[in-house]
Amino acid sequence: IRCIGVSNRDFVEGMSGGTWVDVVLEHGGCVTVMAQDKPTVDIELVTTTVSNMAEVRSYCYEASISDMASDSRCPTQGEAYLDKQSDTQYVCKRTLVDRGWGNGCGLFGKGSLVTCAKFTCSKKMTGKSIQPENLEYRIMLSVHGSQHSGMIVNDTGYETDENRAKVEVTPNSPRAEATLGGFGSLGLDCEPRTGLDFSDLYYLTMNNKHWLVHKEWFHDIPLPWHAGADTGTPHWNNKEALVEFKDAHAKRQTVVVLGSQEGAVHTALAGALEAEMDGAKGKLFSGHLKCRLKMDKLRLKGVSYSLCTAAFTFTKVPAETLHGTVTVEVQYAGTDGPCKIPVQMAVDMQTLTPVGRLITANPVITESTENSKMMLELDPPFGDSYIVIGVGDKKITHHWHRSGSTIGKAFEATVRGAKRMAVLGDTAWDFGSVGGVFNSLGKGIHQIFGAAFKSLFGGMSWFSQILIGTLLVWLGLNTKNGSISLTCLALGGVMIFLSTAVSA
């Protein structure tokens, strides 16, 4: 259960009878995928790494000078000259100064003066180019299975845990398959586009800190620079940016070097996208990844198990997540596992009318040892309800109150669905055939309105939902006002479609 501690969480529900669903994975976010007769899966884009970055340009932001020398000439005696002028490691300046009897010249006039100092770069920052084909995306998957609280967001041991898996995709191999043991396998067909235009970005490294910066900004930095990788004795261009020549006297000129420019660069980098280094690879934390999940090989585990009949206890007080759902960790005293956990939410304890829904599909106890633990997640209705676990006299209950409203949740879900469709863009549509167009249209309606429909009408039977949709269509056909007619027709059509397409 990876997503319960992530604030940016998206719930995606598969269409009834569908074998695939489109998701948008982004750094700092987590996606929970639910479908009829399929286990619930949490998917998170953990890291995006980039390798084989080529150094484009380096800037010196802290330097020192040494070996200063000057040469001067009297008027009419030609130009002052130093051998160091031809050495690229030196920074030199030529000027004219007033000369006369007082400073060793027989004539009054302008004399030539040249001053040089050896330039040494102490600290530099480097910009590297990123090729999209060198990106690698690491995705962690977790099935809502027989897990306890100690396994949440624990990325170790996934090789031997059938509840978890790690997959890596690249532009050259965008397809992967996550093996989930008894739950089958989940196929991923990803489109490795981060949403960032790397043709316009460089990877900047300064003092063990890293950013993504725009090329134009990078090339306009007014500091000494050299092109390409460091060859040991780089040729620094624009050395004068960190060196200041003071007022010249008759035979000498003082040279000083400016202080470190790291603070000024940090100020200019305010708002830039931060990154990290992992050995020789860069780690990015921006952008998104679009994936199509193929769920035809994914299956529920323990459908044929019998119900657990022994007593359950709450190991922890049920807690609310950031998303309005409830996490419950229970301990089973029996030894008759594997068995299914009898769990439901009810409005009252007399009729036990089921409300809400299970995020953890078909929760089971897989071990036959005593005191096995299991964590599950529920989506309670707004208002008061009861969490009921167990059967008969051994069942345990917990009162729950959820604040908020169904309308607010439906609106929030619609906005999130619209954002998801905007990110998917043209990849969500198939114009290759008439059937493809209608299929894409259905998927689009489901992406945007599916979660809201589930919130508003999830407790009704599909037949009642179709009746309401048919009534809206009838009202649309018999209303003389054009805008009201079109609105009723659209709402009725969407409702009829979703009542037959969205899983219960």
Rank of each mutant, 00 (worst) to 15 (best):
2 R>D: 09
3 C>H: 05
4 I>Y: 08
6 V>K: 02
10 D>E: 07
11 F>C: 11
12 V>L: 02
13 E>I: 07
14 G>P: 00
22 D>K: 06
24 V>C: 06
24 V>I: 15
24 V>K: 08
25 L>V: 11
27 H>T: 13
30 C>S: 11
32 T>G: 02
34 M>S: 08
36 Q>N: 08
38 K>R: 15
42 D>R: 01
42 D>Y: 09
42 D>K: 07
45 L>R: 02
46 V>M: 10
47 T>A: 15
50 V>C: 06
50 V>S: 00
51 S>L: 06
54 A>I: 04
54 A>P: 03
55 E>S: 12
56 V>P: 00
59 Y>T: 03
60 C>R: 13
61 Y>E: 06
62 E>P: 00
65 I>Q: 02
68 M>V: 15
71 D>R: 02
71 D>P: 00
72 S>P: 01
74 C>G: 07
80 A>G: 15
82 L>R: 00
82 L>G: 02
83 D>W: 02
83 D>K: 01
86 S>D: 06
87 D>H: 06
88 T>L: 12
88 T>Y: 14
93 K>R: 06
93 K>S: 03
95 T>W: 08
96 L>W: 12
98 D>G: 12
98 D>Y: 02
103 N>W: 09
103 N>Q: 04
106 G>F: 14
107 L>M: 08
107 L>A: 04
108 F>W: 10
115 T>D: 07
116 C>Q: 08
121 C>H: 05
125 M>W: 09
136 E>A: 10
137 Y>L: 01
137 Y>V: 05
138 R>W: 05
142 S>I: 01
143 V>Y: 09
143 V>F: 06
146 S>A: 01
146 S>P: 01
149 S>V: 14
153 V>E: 04
153 V>S: 12
153 V>L: 15
154 N>V: 02
155 D>R: 03
159 E>F: 03
160 T>M: 07
160 T>A: 15
161 D>V: 03
163 N>H: 14
163 N>P: 13
165 A>G: 05
166 K>M: 01
166 K>W: 14
166 K>P: 13
170 T>L: 02
171 P>Y: 05
173 S>P: 11
174 P>I: 08
175 R>P: 06
176 A>F: 10
176 A>E: 11
177 E>W: 12
181 G>Q: 07
182 G>P: 02
188 L>E: 07
189 D>A: 08
190 C>P: 04
191 E>W: 10
194 T>N: 11
196 L>R: 01
201 L>H: 02
201 L>Y: 14
202 Y>T: 14
203 Y>I: 13
203 Y>M: 11
205 T>I: 14
207 N>A: 12
208 N>H: 03
211 W>V: 05
211 W>E: 09
215 K>G: 01
218 F>P: 05
218 F>T: 04
219 H>K: 02
221 I>H: 05
223 L>P: 07
224 P>L: 10
230 D>Y: 04
235 H>D: 02
240 E>W: 02
243 V>K: 06
245 F>A: 02
245 F>R: 02
245 F>N: 07
246 K>E: 12
250 A>E: 05
251 K>V: 03
255 V>Q: 03
255 V>K: 02
256 V>A: 04
256 V>R: 00
257 V>A: 12
257 V>Q: 04
259 G>K: 07
260 S>F: 12
260 S>T: 13
262 E>D: 08
265 V>E: 12
266 H>Q: 15
267 T>M: 12
267 T>A: 13
269 L>C: 11
272 A>D: 12
274 E>L: 03
275 A>R: 00
275 A>Y: 01
276 E>F: 11
277 M>E: 04
278 D>P: 00
280 A>D: 05
280 A>G: 13
281 K>A: 13
282 G>K: 05
282 G>H: 10
284 L>I: 10
287 G>A: 15
290 K>L: 07
290 K>G: 05
291 C>D: 06
294 K>H: 07
294 K>N: 10
296 D>G: 11
298 L>D: 03
299 R>S: 04
299 R>G: 11
302 G>F: 09
303 V>F: 08
305 Y>C: 11
306 S>G: 15
309 T>E: 02
317 V>W: 02
317 V>M: 07
319 A>T: 14
320 E>C: 02
322 L>A: 03
325 T>S: 15
329 E>C: 10
336 D>K: 13
338 P>L: 12
338 P>C: 06
339 C>A: 02
341 I>Q: 09
341 I>C: 09
342 P>L: 10
343 V>P: 03
345 M>T: 02
347 V>E: 11
347 V>Y: 10
349 M>L: 02
350 Q>V: 08
355 V>K: 06
355 V>G: 13
358 L>T: 10
359 I>R: 08
360 T>P: 07
367 E>Q: 06
369 T>E: 00
370 E>C: 06
372 S>K: 05
375 M>T: 01
376 L>C: 02
377 E>L: 01
377 E>C: 05
379 D>F: 03
383 G>M: 09
383 G>R: 08
386 Y>C: 14
390 G>Y: 07
391 V>E: 07
392 G>K: 14
394 K>W: 02
398 H>I: 00
403 S>P: 00
405 S>I: 08
409 K>T: 03
409 K>G: 00
409 K>Q: 14
413 A>W: 07
414 T>A: 12
416 R>H: 11
417 G>F: 09
418 A>V: 14
418 A>S: 02
419 K>M: 09
421 M>W: 08
422 A>K: 03
423 V>C: 03
423 V>P: 01
423 V>N: 07
424 L>E: 06
425 G>V: 00
427 T>A: 14
427 T>Q: 04
430 D>C: 09
431 F>I: 14
435 G>V: 06
436 G>M: 10
437 V>D: 02
441 L>C: 05
442 G>A: 15
442 G>T: 09
444 G>H: 11
447 Q>F: 09
447 Q>I: 14
455 S>D: 13
458 G>S: 14
461 S>V: 01
461 S>D: 10
468 I>D: 01
474 W>V: 09
478 N>W: 09
479 T>L: 08
479 T>C: 05
483 S>N: 09
484 I>T: 15
485 S>Q: 09
485 S>D: 03
487 T>V: 14
488 C>V: 00
492 G>E: 01
493 G>M: 15
494 V>K: 11
495 M>P: 00
500 T>D: 06
500 T>Q: 11
